[in-house]
């Protein structure tokens, strides 16, 4: 499998004191939908702008569709489409005009595809940009991007203003593009969207890749929660290694376990004669909140775990 985007050790500074990207690694394979997650200000938009050649990398290696995004910007842009996070368009043009214009500047659009997308996103192309709501302006950018048949789509929080119905349309379109063998980098905060669409995700924190992998891989890095009833008292639970957040009431306990310690914990439990037990994998919310919440040293440690695997 070829890679659509290969970024390694990317550094981007804004002035001497602000390091926006700090040795970021990001790999997007061809034909995959890659989720790009991280708290506000983590560097997602900066990364995408470097990928577009709008900003120049200070250090590291960036490869986009086999080319250098800074040097070969124009040639590469014929093969990709971009939806910016903040859609700034010309207030006195109509939505239809903007779609045609951006498509033409990229190298031409498919008129029937354009009509189909306008229909599916329920967008009126005769309104002026300044008369559209935020969600409708976003739809203009989405229709403009999806009307072009290109190899790679860079989508920067493309659904932040869409209603649930349009969100579903967006997910359908992305699924179709994946089936058709297109590559997509999807920056997003909407976990259900990421889970429904993405093959792999990269979580970025403070300009670094905190974790990267499939959801299953990420889940394995995270604690399993356990609810258990035993015949003998569970008082010793809190002393076992790998156990966190334990709440014990005599023979009933709730706690979470580090992934590497699950087997040891089970051995201890067997000694106490398990009567009933429920384990559940971490939810995505837990997974992400942990990353969004942690301090920077925690993120660094998590990144170490990924590299060690």
């Amino acid at each position: 499998m070829r890679t659509a985007i290969a970024v390694s050790g990317l550094v981007k500074d804004f002035g001497p004191r602000t390091r926006a990207l700090d040795h970021l690694d990001l790999q997007v394979e061809t034909c995959e939908v890659h989720g790009f997650l991280g708290p506000n200000g983590a560097g997602k938009t900066t990364t995408i702008r470097v990928l577009l050649g709008l900003l120049r990398a200070d250090d590291g290696h960036v490869d986009l569709l086999g080319g250098d995004p800074w040097r070969d910007a124009v040639a590469l842009h014929r093969r990709l489409a971009y939806v910016p996070g903040e859609v700034n368009l010309w207030p006195n043009l109509t939505g239809g005009e903007v779609i045609d214009l951006l498509g033409e500047l990229r190298g031409g659009i498919d008129p029937s595809r354009r009509e189909e997308l306008l229909e599916r996103f329920q967008l009126d192309p005769t309104k002026k940009i300044r008369a559209y709501s935020k969600g409708n302006r976003q739809k203009v950018a989405l229709v403009a991007a999806f009307s072009s048949d290109v190899e790679l789509y860079l989508l920067d929080e493309p659904t932040s203003g869409l209603d649930p119905l349009m969100e579903a349309v967006f997910q359908d379109v992305v699924q179709e593009l994946r089936t058709a063998g297109r590559s997509i980098l999807l920056s997003s905060h909407i976990l259900s969207e990421v889970e429904a669409l993405c093959d792999r995700v990269t979580i970025i924190r403070a300009g670094r890749a905190a974790e990267s992998g499939t959801f299953d891989e990420l889940r394995h890095l995270t604690r399993t929660s356990v609810v258990v009833d035993t015949a003998k008292p569970l008082a010793s639970v809190t002393r076992w290694t790998g156990v966190h957040d334990a709440r014990v009431q005599d023979t009933h306990a709730q706690f979470s376990v580090d992934p590497g310690e699950l087997n040891h914990v089970l051995e201890h439990l067997v000694d106490l004669e398990v009567r009933s037990m429920v384990t559940s994998p971490p939810t995505l919310e837990e997974l992400f909140l942990r990353h969004y919440d942690e301090d920077i040293s925690g993120a660094g440690a998590a990144a170490e775990v990924v590299r060690a695997r």
Partner: peptide, 23 residues
């Protein structure tokens, strides 16, 4: 009041020079 406009761009708009002229 805000008027509606064209659903399709004219070909004269479809270039950077055409866009700047329009603006």
């Amino acid at each position: 009041p805000e008027r509606r406009g064209a659903a399709h761009a004219r070909s004269s708009l479809l270039s950077p020079t055409g866009l700047v002229f329009r603006l």
